Amino acid sequence: MAVSGDPKSRGELKIFDNSDELATDLAEYIAQLSEFSVKERGVFTIALSGGPLISLMGKLCQAPYSKTVDWTKWYVFWADERAVSKSHIDSNYKLAKDGFLSKVPVLNSHIYSINDNATAEDAAEEYEFTIRQLVKVRTIDVSAISDCPKFDLILLCMGADGHVASLFPHHPALEDKENWVTFITDSPVPPPERITFTLPVINSASNVAMVVTGEENKATALCLALSDCNEETDALSSPARMVWPANGKLVWFLDKAVASELDGSDSGVGSQ
């Protein structure tokens, strides 16, 4: 594994030889954050995405984590969701339920999925209202900087176009600073209707993990996401590059395939 990172960089980079090594380290990372949050606040608030993320979390369902993680203290949310039924193949809830949540003893009452009977707009409003209620009672922490919810961990994947959650390049939702949860009806990849956390919420988290593997030729998008912002680069072309927690920690979990185009001299990646 290669590791790099300093406070002025695009976060800590962890590059693994294969997906199994990545999954092993990811499980340990999540378990440690869970333990710390439960000790500090009595709960662990985690927001999931879709894509290959859920399968890579699979080692949490195995020993020792299946027994050592305090699953009853987990509160589970989604950083984005498709406006489809919970039984639909495109549902991030279904993906997480089938591949992860059904295999660990997280309390059903602590799993907050969207209303799949509502329109995308109404579902976004309801989801934000739910989060606001949980912030009021401090189940979800609040950022002292932005007054946004401060999730203990937000787990994200990145698309081949650089999108994260359901925030796509040059989409108006990228500039939404008023809402915690917004909706889109014109996703460039199906299904078109989705709800998503806005960037202020993502960037208010205590920890953000970007999990990116080499399928779908994401290497070029990764290079753009990790490049320095300057006048010649358009930040809106790479939503992943706009993920930068204001008072938290960003960690990239990468496999060698997706990291293949990174310039070691620019990224600072070195062997550990």
Score class of each variant (00 low, 15 high):
Ala2Met: 15
Val3Lys: 15
Gly5Gln: 02
Gly5Met: 02
Arg10Asp: 00
Gly11Lys: 12
Gly11His: 13
Lys14Cys: 11
Asp17Pro: 09
Asp20Glu: 12
Asp20Gln: 10
Glu21Tyr: 07
Asp25Asn: 04
Ala27Asp: 13
Glu28Phe: 04
Tyr29Lys: 06
Ala31Trp: 01
Gly42Ala: 02
Val43Ser: 09
Ile46Glu: 06
Gly51Val: 04
Leu56Ile: 12
Leu56Tyr: 12
Gly58His: 13
Val69Leu: 01
Trp74Pro: 12
Tyr75Ile: 10
Tyr75Val: 12
Val76Ala: 15
Asp80Tyr: 00
Lys86Arg: 10
Lys86Pro: 05
Ile89Trp: 10
Asn92His: 11
Tyr93Cys: 11
Tyr93Arg: 14
Lys94Asn: 05
Gly99Asp: 08
Phe100Gln: 03
Leu101His: 02
Val104Trp: 05
Tyr112Asp: 06
Ile114His: 02
Ala123Phe: 09
Glu125His: 04
Glu125Asp: 07
Glu126His: 05
Arg132Ser: 14
Leu134Glu: 13
Val135Met: 15
Ile140Glu: 07
Asp141Ser: 14
Ser143Cys: 11
Cys148Met: 07
Pro149Ala: 03
Met158Val: 03
Asp161Ser: 00
Ala165Phe: 03
His170Tyr: 14
His171Lys: 09
Asp176Phe: 01
Val181Asp: 09
Ser187Asp: 06
Pro191Asn: 03
Arg194Val: 08
Thr196Tyr: 02
Phe197Ala: 13
Phe197Ile: 09
Thr198Cys: 07
Thr198Phe: 04
Ser204Cys: 04
Ala205Asn: 02
Ala205Ser: 10
Ser206Ala: 12
Ala209Glu: 06
Val211Gly: 00
Val211Leu: 00
Gly214Ser: 12
Cys223Leu: 14
Ser227Cys: 11
Ser227Met: 05
Ser227Trp: 00
Glu232Leu: 11
Pro239Ser: 00
Ala240Phe: 04
Asn247Ile: 00
Lys249Gly: 08
Lys256Leu: 05
Ala257Thr: 14
Ser260Lys: 14
Ser260Thr: 09
Asp263Glu: 01
Ser265Glu: 15
Ser265Asp: 15
Ser267Val: 03
Val269Pro: 01
Gly270Asn: 07
